[in-house]
Design a protein around this nucleic acid. Sequence first.
DNA 1: AAATAAACGAGACGGTACGTCTGGTCTTGAA
DNA 2: TTCAAGACCAGACGTACCGTCTCGTTTATTT
Lengths: 202, 202, 202, 202
Amino acid sequence: MKTPNPSRRSEQSRRAILNAALDLVAEVGYAKLTVEAIAARAGVGKQTIYRWWPSKGAVLVDAVLALSEDEEGAIALPDTGDIRADLRGVLRAIVDEYNDPKIDTITRALAVESLTDPTLNTQITGRVLGPLLEVTKDRLRAGQRAGQVAEGVDLGVAVELLYAPIYHRWVLRTNPLTHEYADTVLELALKALSPATINTVE
Amino acid sequence: MKTPNPSRRSEQSRRAILNAALDLVAEVGYAKLTVEAIAARAGVGKQTIYRWWPSKGAVLVDAVLALSEDEEGAIALPDTGDIRADLRGVLRAIVDEYNDPKIDTITRALAVESLTDPTLNTQITGRVLGPLLEVTKDRLRAGQRAGQVAEGVDLGVAVELLYAPIYHRWVLRTNPLTHEYADTVLELALKALSPATINTVE
Amino acid sequence: MKTPNPSRRSEQSRRAILNAALDLVAEVGYAKLTVEAIAARAGVGKQTIYRWWPSKGAVLVDAVLALSEDEEGAIALPDTGDIRADLRGVLRAIVDEYNDPKIDTITRALAVESLTDPTLNTQITGRVLGPLLEVTKDRLRAGQRAGQVAEGVDLGVAVELLYAPIYHRWVLRTNPLTHEYADTVLELALKALSPATINTVE
Amino acid sequence: MKTPNPSRRSEQSRRAILNAALDLVAEVGYAKLTVEAIAARAGVGKQTIYRWWPSKGAVLVDAVLALSEDEEGAIALPDTGDIRADLRGVLRAIVDEYNDPKIDTITRALAVESLTDPTLNTQITGRVLGPLLEVTKDRLRAGQRAGQVAEGVDLGVAVELLYAPIYHRWVLRTNPLTHEYADTVLELALKALSPATINTVE
DNA sequence: AAATAAACGAGACGGTACGTCTGGTCTTGAA
DNA sequence: TTCAAGACCAGACGTACCGTCTCGTTTATTT
């Protein structure tokens, strides 16, 4: 096994490959995405892809990471003090992304990879999903300090309560994803996380 | 296009194919599952598969359905009056299934199909997931009548609140799936669905 | 190793492959002949070639054999009693073939294979060259009976004396191949094979 | 196209390349000889080979030429007055060379190149084969002066009569190459070239 | 019981893409 | 500036499967 020397790597080819991968997956879908087509579209030899990535999934993950890293730390949640409004903005934005056909296709491709290849799953959850969950936890922590979120709650579970229902509905296409749905989920989640005592009806 | 006559279908071949598909997907994973291998393992001609199923995904869905239909309507939720205990049993059982390597592998395969092929997605959500969601809604409705669940709540959202976090954690492997986790999710969900008023802290 | 069943073999594909191989080797030469191009030209999948032949050289040998077997036993030498005239016809015909660009190209390809692959060398010498040498030996044997060729001469060497110089000149392109050359070779060979005694000059 | 400056050429690299080429062709055969392997074995960049030679065949030809030029004009035929003995020595020596596995392999490689590439063919026949044919013609000319070879005979054909049968048998592997065979060929050739008249049996 | 027609096992077919290998060109750093 | 090292584009290699298409051979009605 010969490990190539990264210092000699052609940045131009790398960009061309990542762009071609994103374009093609949006055009033909993940199942019909081929390394051969990526190479052809990028004007690159197949070996140049195989030299640097182990699979088409890895190329795609890199492509998506390159995308999100271009936007440079845009993954910051607002903190206006109004936790309901702040989270509503995030959830609605996520719904909008899932409803964008291009993002939908690419994200489904990532989801397939995540299900299939544990290595890529680690990368995807660590570098794409992870940061979002972290900033959300930060926002919820601020909510705890402000008395809007119960002290004892496990924030790891809390963020799943917010995002998982939307993800579930998107993956399984059980029902349409709308802003109203996002709002409903948010209301229930906030109630669940609320620090308030509950007056059980007797 | 010639539509074959189902009355002449060989039940023996059908069973052999479904079993071979389940065995193989557990052995080599979904990505490396091939129609050719299923046919060879089942001792069957490839055409016999293509005659009755449009894709390897469809075979797998049928195989899983055959499995669950063997267990014959087992998808009934208990109703002991204690909604917390009843749901806890279900959630823990789901966690156990996801933690079973064979079921894990097969279910991931179905999830991949669901993401990839809208037709199969419809079948999977309709015939595998759907019944579970329905009986859960029934149980929650009983909870509403018993005053344990708020009246106005959208039960479609309610069941997602219960199941989606577990699904999310399983798909993305963000954290281990345990009974404790299931219990935590249940507590939060029950609080969210609770009919009680909330005493906002002043 | 799976050995295919010859009874199911497609005669149509076989012919198309052999024809495509001959056409292509004449067009682009042996070094640039590829299995891929043969398959494409023949309208055939690559596997259909690899199923029945181990290499492009083997295809070519079969193609040439098919050619010569179409001409059906044409490899018979005349026996008019005039051994000089009979052999002159053969040698000139061989010179003409070597001077035909298409035959030249194909024969060079066979020669390269013969040099490179011992297996194909056996086939080529056995099935293409061998029969010619045999009928020539037969003719020389008749010459022996007629007293035109010495009794003791090794006919294996005798046929080489006739054909080798032409082959040598063709392979190495040392000088042009003409009828006159063929005639000169023939005269010398006949003198060498002559049963006559020699009057050494004193 | 950039023509490199020969004065700057590294003699050390040149020798290393030629030696590597000879070693490798003897080891793996001509078909599996690659420029990449030559470069690696010689401890040289591929470009250094492509800078000075157009193809692997050209390298090999140069390598063989370098070999024979080291032996410095060794290509001289003895002239003891006994033409039979002198030629017998040459023919037997050639047979011995063809029977040496290393020389066999390299010579087959040259033959393949000669068949494939007209440019290299010219070089090979001109610089390797040519000198041998010339000195042989010289020896035959001396034979003519001594009355051992007929005056009118075309010496170009005469040398082919001597060497072609051996070459033919070597290339095509039709029969084993032995000293006895060389002697038989020589006897027939000398008879053919003999100045004597022939007493046809009546 | 014989005839007939469909489904069956087997597997060859035209294809697509795989991941690897080599050819010949271009780029980078060290000497 | 030349070289070794090796990345690059290009494209053929031989393999694996795809989904379609015959082949005989069961198997199960129809006659």
